Amino acid sequence: MNESAPLSQHTPLFQPRFDIGAQRIDCGREPDVATHAAADDFASWPLLDYSDCEPTEDQAAINRWLAEAALEGRDVLHVGTGNSSVARLLAGKARRIESVTVAHNEWRHGRELGLADYSVHLLNKHSLAFAERFEAGAFDCILDNNLASFACCQRHLERYFETLVRLLKPDGFVLTHWLGMQWTLDVGVDDVEPVWRLDAGKLRAIASVYGLSVQREDELFFLRRADRN
């Protein structure tokens, strides 16, 4: 490698795979669990830590669906641990439940429950660490009621969608909720761009780039591999 060559010759510029109007294409830093931590000081409601809260309206709707779903012996990933309601609901039903959170209290609370076949990971879902944590094709069901809400930039949101596709089993699905798609972080620190407030059209536009189709059931949205429909 030529040590004197310009950096641009060593590191290709990020080329977005879709365009829904984002201004922050590459934030220029690696996401971690502290990326949005400073925002807690500006919020008067639980922003990152829901360990001591009842499930939000969107999470409660997802939980009602899960309670009736045929997930016996399946592998489940829950992005956004909260009070571990998903793990408590699926304990003894799903084969394995993994969960990720950026909130230390959620991480501790989940670990202290002592549920069998349940693991909680302190990770930012947009990070390389998350992208590399689990084996490919590991999950039948991935739950995230805020698919784009905390995106720091398009580069790292694209990394997250790439990871979701890599983690899905051939017949697996991602489940999200309309209400969570509408919520963005806007408290004066590391604000999320309003463009990441998703609707059905934006979600389909993004999903199609990754070979995913979107099916809507009331306020729930299911993303599956398009070639499996």
Rank of each mutant, 00 (worst) to 15 (best):
W65D: 03
W65A: 12
W65Q: 08
L66M: 13
L66P: 06
L66G: 09
A67M: 14
E68M: 10
E68N: 12
E68Y: 05
E68A: 13
A69F: 00
A70F: 07
A70M: 09
L71V: 13
E72Q: 14
G73C: 12
R74H: 01
D75E: 14
D75A: 15
D75T: 14
V76D: 01
L77T: 09
L77G: 09
H78C: 12
H78L: 07
H78K: 11
H78F: 00
H78G: 03
V79H: 00
G80Y: 02
G80P: 02
T81E: 00
T81Q: 07
T81M: 04
G82R: 06
G82M: 06
N83A: 15
N83I: 02
S84C: 13
S84Y: 05
S84F: 00
V86Y: 02
V86D: 04
A87V: 02
A87Y: 01
R88M: 14
A91H: 15
A91C: 13
A91L: 00
A91P: 07
K93Q: 08
K93F: 03
A94K: 05
A94G: 02
R95L: 10
R95S: 11
R95M: 05
R96V: 00
R96H: 13
I97K: 08
S99A: 15
V100E: 10
V100P: 08
V100H: 04
T101P: 07
V102N: 01
V102C: 09
V102K: 02
H104F: 12
E106R: 01
E106A: 12
E106Q: 14
W107F: 15
W107K: 11
W107T: 06
G110K: 05
R111F: 08
R111Y: 10
R111E: 14
